[in-house]
Amino acid sequence: MTRPGRLLRRHAALLVMPMLVALFLAATVAIHPAFGAFDVQSLALGALPLALAAAAQTVVVLSGGIDLSVGSLMAVANVVAARTMQHAGFGQSLGLAALIVLGGAASGAVNGAVLVASRVPDVVVTLAAGFIWGGIALLILEQPGGGAPDAFLNLGAGTLFDGLVPNALVLLIVVVAAIWLPVRSSRLGLTLYAIGSDRTAAFRSGVAVERTRFLAYVVGGVFSAVGGLALTMTTGIGSPLAGTYYTLSGLAAVVVGGVSLTGGRGGMTGPMFAAYILTLIPTDLIFLNIDPNFGQVIQGTLIVLVVMGGGLATLLRQRP
């Protein structure tokens, strides 16, 4: 295979996903000519928590696992932020945010440790963990409420460069790059992909498989906590029940973003673009005067079609 062809295949998500986003944006403008800078701003803000949920899920899925507690962890971070930041100053709120991210790492560590120690499959552990974290979120904040200082909430609002680049997008890029790039370029990133791709070969190459699985959940926990903070930013309050939505939609973004659910294949950029697409769908439906609840149907259908397509491809490959 020639070099460009190989590059194309390996980075298909990188090429296709921006085109898809552009296509959806173009369609949005066509449907709704008044779609302007403000709408782009709210799109970027709306996509922020979903993109971070997808980031959390991506790390775990790349390592060959699956995390059904992402949304609940986000909810915990969200309600903790809304409760503690309500009467805090801007500086204090940044300090609290840092603590919450640390807490996210610790929660991810708990998930990972239970998983490795109990030898129960990822699915069961994180399903149960999801309900436990969800319960904790409800204990911290029974009803949607709380808040955060305006300066903190405004981090994600506004634009740069004459309204061309929404701050929320900059924030997303900065945060994901700050967490993921060091991981990706370190030995951890390499071992993460390795255990997701082939655990036996990775083990024989000298990789500490269990430790890497554990660390994947820690990094996932960090992303979940940041996602919870982003949720506080977009909604201004804490809502303990936001959980399930982001678990499912985050997984959808991962699948649509070209990450293989069997692990080892895919990247971080695909799911980020997919998060924008999944956020654009309900927006477009509103502009089209179609019931935005169709958005959920379309998301569900998209997941099902993408995974079925993957299954079909596998079937065809096995039967030459």
């Binding site: 959920q296 569900g300 099902v304 995974v307």
Partner: peptide, 17 residues
């Protein structure tokens, strides 16, 4: 041959929506 978990998550979303 879709993983049951993902498949039924998807159809659950579809049905609810």
């Amino acid at each position: 041959r879709v993983q049951p978990l993902v498949m039924t998550l998807g159809t659950g979303l579809m049905a609810q929506g």
